[in-house]
């Protein structure tokens, strides 16, 4: 298993190939539907005027995301009243919902990795080549275990989105992932899809 710590260099990303198991450490940021839509509309396409603290958050995010990782995760968090946050359950959510936004977010913020489950489509794969970046597949459902790899919660932005949708700045230690889309155009998802389709076609030909 490879070890990587954020911020991750372009060379380290280019070194990664589909199928590689990686233990990730360092600081990363969670973000799902609301966060991606907000980043695109407010800072990238600029179809929506920044409101409230948006510009300050943007400056912080630029620093945090540069060379780092976005995690598609809607965590269960304890300590909301005291702000002594602790992640209780933090597995990946389905990534494909961010397909319209992901590549632009990666390129704009120089995001080196996206963690989620289920894989993403051609637009993101192209984004991985251009940034360069990779898609890391986490273990779907392993919520308690993955929460334990979160050693510290540094803070949170956009709490107005609600706990699962807010952008949590977390520090992880040995968070296990598998590279399923790399920066060379490789996608484990399409390989497995094609191979299993061939087996299926053979099975359908078999007599009962």
């Amino acid at each position: 298993m490879k070890q990587l710590t954020t911020p991750i260099s372009d060379e380290a990303i280019r070194d990664l190939k589909v199928g590689d198991s990686v233990a990730l450490s360092g600081i990363m940021v969670t973000g799902r539907d609301a966060a991606h839509k907000w980043m695109i509309e407010t800072f990238i396409k600029k179809t929506r005027a920044p409101q409230g603290e948006d510009m300050q958050v943007y400056e912080e995010l630029k620093k945090l995301l540069n060379g780092s990782v976005i995690y598609h995760c809607g965590p269960v968090v304890a300590g909301l009243d005291t702000k002594e946050y602790k992640f209780i359950a933090a597995g990946p959510t389905t990534s494909i919902r961010e397909e319209p936004y992901q590549a632009d977010v990666m390129k704009h913020f120089n995001v080196k990795g996206v963690i989620g489950k289920g894989g993403m489509g051609p637009k993101t794969l192209k984004g991985c080549e251009e940034t360069p970046g990779v898609y890391f597949h986490a273990i779907g459902g392993a919520a308690s275990f993955l929460a334990q790899t979160v050693v510290k919660v540094h803070g949170v932005f956009k709490m107005d989105f609600g706990v699962p949708e807010a952008m949590w700045v977390i520090e992880v230690k040995d968070f296990p992932v598998v590279v399923t889309m790399d920066s060379h155009g490789g996608s484990q998802h399409s390989v497995i899809d094609d191979a299993s389709k061939k087996v299926l076609d053979d099975l359908l030909e078999k007599p009962y």
Binding site: M1, P75, A89, G91, I139, A143, S144, P176, V178
Partner: peptide, 27 residues
């Protein structure tokens, strides 16, 4: 293999959730 790694992580998660009475999956 990645497949084996996934199953091993799943097993650890099952044990942890049972010990701590936390949801096995957040969904």
């Amino acid at each position: 293999s990645a497949a084996r790694g996934a199953l091993e992580t799943i097993m650890k998660n099952i044990e942890l959730s049972r010990t701590n009475s936390t949801p096995i999956c957040q969904d």
